[in-house]
């Protein structure tokens, strides 16, 4: 079974701040990391390899420095890593990202594709399902458990807003995974050694044979028009005094809004 995991290198958004004066992003010293959900995708794939005959390839589309993320995935147990990089891909929205990645996936071949639920920078959760459409395969989003797996059928649990569904799907198939699925492993020492020396396969526009007008900015229907800081509420009242006095004030507020 051939498993491909799609990963994205992202700025660690927990450390990204916006400067309220200038409305600009401040990312001084913010490290680049593997998208946290993608770690769960890698873990799922590597865990499958431990119980059945399978190979794990990690694929990322991004600038050359994304190679670091690929090496980390090899350290976690992936067999092979592919970097899809070309200036022609810059400015891709989710449509163009998914389209370009699907071109690479067709070339690589696959039975199972794992993605993270969403990337923590763009935060759209759209790339996975869109890729499945371009590849004409089914997908299941928000997978929180893999119940059973064979070469032809997989049964999974997907999270819904009000509970969960148990879904059976044929193979080939694409899954997007949530944190609840598993606990990503740490890289082993042996894995790190392997990662250091691993060959990263590089693909460019020329290798995937897609029409230039559908790539990068020109293939992207959405445009980011501007960005700004989230607004914060202004007026606020802080209750002072002893706990008893504070509670009396709070009680009044709840009463005034007919909460009690």
């Amino acid at each position: 079974m051939k498993i491909v995991v799609c990963i994205k290198q992202v700025p660690d958004t927990a450390e990204v701040k916006i400067n309220p004066q200038t409305n600009t992003l401040m990312r001084d010293g913010v490290p680049s990391i593997i998208n946290p959900y993608d770690l769960h995708a890698i873990e799922a794939a590597v865990a499958i390899k431990e119980v059945m005959d399978a190979t794990v390839t990690v694929l990322t589309m991004g600038p050359p420095q994304a190679e670091v993320a690929l090496r980390e995935s090899i350290a976690m147990g992936a067999d092979e890593a592919v970097l899809l990089s070309d200036r022609a891909f810059a400015g891709s929205d989710t449509w163009a990202t998914a389209y370009t990645l699907s071109g690479a996936l067709k070339k690589l071949g696959f039975d199972l594709i794992f993605c993270g639920k969403q990337a923590i920078d763009g935060d759209t959760a759209q790339v996975g399902p869109a890729m499945a459409e371009f590849l004409d395969i089914p997908h299941v989003a928000y997978v929180s458990k893999i119940n059973s797996i064979s070469d032809t059928v997989v049964e999974v649990r997907r999270m819904m807003d009000d509970g969960y569904d148990v879904v059976e799907t044929s193979v080939p198939v694409l899954f997007t995974v949530v944190r609840e699925l598993n606990q990503p492993r740490f890289a082993s020492l042996k894995g790190k050694m392997r990662a250091k020396n691993a060959q990263i396969r590089k693909l460019t526009h020329a290798d995937i044979e897609l029409d230039e007008k559908d790539l990068g900015l020109s293939g992207s229907p959405t445009q980011v028009k501007n960005i700004f800081a989230p607004e914060m509420k202004k007026e606020r009242i802080v209750f002072e005094g002893s706990p008893a006095e504070q509670v009396a004030e709070l009680h009044n507020v709840l009463k005034s809004v007919k909460c009690i």
Binding site: Q126, A130, E133, A141, Y142
Partner: peptide
């Protein structure tokens, strides 16, 4: 932007080559 909408709308947008703004 629910489990259902976020799962299948990207497929629709992909098929139609339409822009889809998330969430």
């Amino acid at each position: 932007a629910t489990a259902i909408g976020r799962s299948f709308f990207p497929r629709v947008a992909a098929r139609l080559h339409a822009g889809l703004t998330a969430d």
